[in-house]
Amino acid sequence: MAIDEQVTGPTTHVDGEVDRAEFQALLEDWAAAIVANDADRISAFAEPDWQIVGTESGPSPLGAFLEVVRDGSLTHSEMTFEVLSVRRLGEVAVVVAHGTNRGRWQGEPFSADEWVSDVFVRRDGRWRCVLSALTPNAGA
């Protein structure tokens, strides 16, 4: 028995086209909510205790993210994702994607090319994000 099976139970690797397509669609829907700058739609994809971890500001809670969207300090005009891998451990999934986005932060334009690591939990038949970690794509 593998060590991860002893600690957490069986690990299911979800890397088939159907499974990747499910998370690709989910991330595209979430990106559409972010590009719409719609805080209520954005929050529907995340657990209330969601955190985003970026290189500039470190961990930030959902409330802080939604606040800067609501007050217009942060806007997005473009966001894309390419799901690279998905790993599921029961009702938890870890998704690694390549993402790009453009927008404005406090009136100044920005663009980002990043590796995105998202942790999702399945609740009431829906995947909701609990953590997003952003790593700049230094090779871009």
Rank of each mutant, 00 (worst) to 15 (best):
E5K: 11
G72I: 11
T135H: 02
Q24I: 01
G103D: 10
F81Q: 11
E82D: 06
F65A: 04
V92D: 07
V35P: 09
V83W: 13
P109V: 05
V7A: 12
E114A: 07
H76T: 15
I42V: 06
A93G: 15
N37P: 02
T75M: 08
S77V: 06
A97E: 08
A36K: 02
W50K: 08
N137R: 11
S111I: 01
E22T: 07
A2N: 14
D4Q: 10
R128D: 02
E17I: 10
R123I: 02
I52Y: 02
E56D: 11
L84G: 08
V121I: 11
R41I: 02
R102K: 12
D19P: 03
E17Y: 13
A140R: 12
D118H: 03
A64I: 00
S132A: 03
S73E: 09
E78P: 00
S73W: 04
D40S: 05
Q6K: 01
V18K: 10
V7W: 11
L84Y: 00
D124Q: 07
T100Y: 02
E82T: 05
D113T: 14
R88H: 07
P109I: 00
E5C: 03
R102W: 04
G63A: 13
V119C: 01
A2R: 12
R70E: 15
I52D: 04
A36D: 06
E78K: 11
T12K: 11
E17F: 11
V18D: 13
V53I: 15
W115Q: 12
Q6M: 01
L131E: 04
R41L: 12
I3L: 06
P48W: 03
E78H: 05
D124S: 04
V86R: 09
V35S: 08
A32E: 09
V121G: 05
A133P: 14
V86F: 08
D38M: 03
E82W: 00
H76V: 15
G9K: 08
S57V: 01
E67S: 13
L84H: 04
S132C: 05
L74D: 05
N137M: 06
G125H: 07
I34G: 12
A2K: 10
A39V: 02
A2W: 06
E22D: 09
P10E: 00
L89H: 09
A44C: 10
